[in-house]
Amino acid sequence: MSKPTLLLVDDEERILRSLRMLFFTGYNVRMTTDANEAIRILKEERIHVIVSDQRMPIMLGAELLRIAREISPCTMRILLTGYSDLDASIACVNEGEVFRYLLKPWSGEEVKQVVADAAAIALATFANERSPYTAAMLQQKARILVLDSDESTVHAVREVLRDSAEVIWAGNLQHATEVLSQVDIAVLVADVMLDGKNISYMLKTVKQQYPKTQSMVVTSFKDTSHLIDLINQAQIARYLPKPLRKNILGRNLEYLIERFRAVCTVPLLQTRHSVAPISDPKEQAQAHGLMDLLNRLRLHRATA
């Protein structure tokens, strides 16, 4: 099998030279300091993985990755940045749909592993010769689970989806867990802050247990490092700040329902959203407890 092709983009050529040394044995490495050149390469060559810097003179990395997504949807997208600002991370979720958000200075081992995972996934998706997310619609109505103690969120979701989906509201974790263990959920809409507690671990666990379920975070909580963890460890599909704007909510919910259907039709696609292990020890413990509970509930359903 031929080597996967890796495209490195950074306005500092010393970064490019340094990264190249990590990859030149296992990959065809293409690199450029010019985002326009990167776009040209994406159009002309098959690129399996693109690793881009965020702050560059011509355009931001998140913008380049958005364009990459349009030109070459099968290419896996990774952002490598020294700046962890919230706007950039939100753009990375919603527009760039990045596989990983990595920070400079990086760990060589971690970057190598992430790129290797991404490359394997890209090779498989390219080989499948199907553009992601164009799968035929399933007939069944999609189920949306809204986990938010604030009832206005579920009202907004119901209002924008009307009868096109079944919307279930859970105001607390226990109810949400029961629902998740009993029925397939297409989209989980959740606030990371539930009654003042951060429930990021819940989103991470759901993605591990139900990789098909797409999650949308709706929140007024602003914390960049949390968001970066949610990208890498929960592969959240969308991040919408509260207060919610109905048209944006509607458009994104429809898109995620489609994406769920695509993933159901072509299971290979779910590997594109595979997650990194949970890094925070406290969250690991919480996630472990939740997983136990989900398994017990599922067994209960199976035997009932």
């Binding site: 500092e12 010393r14 970064i15 030279r17 340094s18 990264l19 040394m21 990590l22 020294g82 700046y83 962890s84 920070l103 400079k104 200075p105 990086w106 060589g108």
Partner: peptide, 17 residues
């Protein structure tokens, strides 16, 4: 600090390599 991350990134990587 952010700006230091760029040179720090490649210096650290180069030294590791």
């Amino acid at each position: 600090a952010h700006e230091i991350n760029t040179p720090l990134g490649y210096v650290q990587n180069n030294v590791t390599i």
